[in-house]
Design a protein around this nucleic acid. Structure first.
Lengths: 207, 207
DNA sequence: GTTCGGGCAATACATTTGTACCGTTCCTTG
DNA sequence: CAAGGAACGGTACAAATGTATTGCCCGAAC
């Protein structure tokens, strides 16, 4: 999640920014200055240049000088993933109503991490860690299993058996794979029989 | 989640496509043909044109003719969210190891839905529905509360109180907001005192 | 009033950029 | 061997494009 630390805009600037966000969200690439000009109903590129310069100074956009169609929106980095986080909600009781945007949910930093992979969860052995059957877990490849902290959720390949999602614990030369469900017994194995494949980064559940 | 239904590529085409995916993922905009030329170590734009044409014919890319830097990758739509789903994992016991990519996790369709907003969960009233304290829930605005199915998870604004995340039930003119935690009592209210703001679309938990 | 900044129009210009054309080489397929 | 496709180099050109400059208008601030 990232903040959106920008200064306020004039109506003309806001109008351009909104149109840019919509255009880029639809076309997946930046328009040219003359396209913006037409969309704003103008007949000269100068006003667009001016607005762009102001949007840049105020930290809303950026681009590579001299290069065509290299505009980037900074407000909601991905555009697609720019979802406003309106506030805290629920509890047991009731919390105060939210009114305006507090920050922006930006999944990009996570999703951009190279090498990430995802697994579909099958079964209920991790329910007490709030990972349910059918959830998709995003995993980060683990280079050095020695540096894993005990308790980390990992996907591990057990020699001759299969892959499982469990809490990881190391006890000397032994590795314990512990479920988050009292119905399942911890699996205790020599370290060399367990290949840790990935570390849990995020849980995604689509309803 | 989307498939990637494309014809096979030659090594040169694959090399270009991979570089494009990396470049666009990093810079968020398409490079120019001459930038591709340099990146591929070539000294003429013609080979790039050729590769691009083939990539287009095989359904991997597209662009708007005559317009600079309007290239789009079709393979994994967002690029950033193109995370391979390797297979099912865990259960109580062990499942077979995965070997190759089965499908791609594509968050774009969800994240592109206009009007989505997110809320930070505060409290443990929904733990039995695997929504934990600190999770971020993605909500879709609800236009017509009449069409909500009973049991749907909604964020609701209770008149004079605040916003809460609960299971939604309608009983005639009465609305029942039910927690997923036996420690909390259902809230029963006249329908006009409850304003349903959004419907749960997805749960995101970053570790 | 004066000043200053934002916004618009018009014009100009050097680059960038997509595209086309020609010829060559290399490899695979028949 | 011949034929075809893919790839590469070189060149050329019209159009698209970013950018700079000048002048004008308007409203807010002083």
């Amino acid at each position: 999640m990232t903040r959106a630390p920008q200064e306020p805009l004039t109506t003309a600037q806001q109008e351009l920014y909104d149109w840019l966000a919509d255009y880029i969200g639809t076309h997946r690439h930046s328009p040219s200055i003359r396209q913006m000009m037409q969309a704003m109903g103008l007949r000269s590129p100068a006003p667009i240049q001016s607005r762009l310069r102001h949007l840049q100074q105020k930290g809303w956009i950026t681009w590579q000088e001299g290069q065509a169609r290299t505009l980037q929106l900074l407000g909601d980095m991905v555009g697609a993933a720019g979802i406003p986080v309106l506030g805290a909600v629920a509890a047991g009781g009731l919390v105060t109503a939210f009114d305006d945007v507090q920050e922006h949910l930006d999944l990009a930093p996570v999703l951009e991490t190279r090498g990430l992979f995802a697994l579909t969860v099958n079964g209920d052995s991790m329910v007490d860690s709030h990972i349910a059957d059918g959830d998709v877990v995003l995993m980060e490849p683990v280079q050095d299993p020695q540096r894993l902290r005990n308790g980390t959720v990992v996907s591990a390949l057990v020699a001759g058996s299969g892959t499982t999602l469990k809490h990881f614990h190391r006890q000397g030369a032994t590795v314990v794979l512990e479920a988050a469900n009292p119905a399942y017994q911890p699996i205790e194995l020599p370290a060399e029989q367990v290949e840790v494949q990935g570390r849990l980064v995020a849980v995604w559940r689509q309803v």
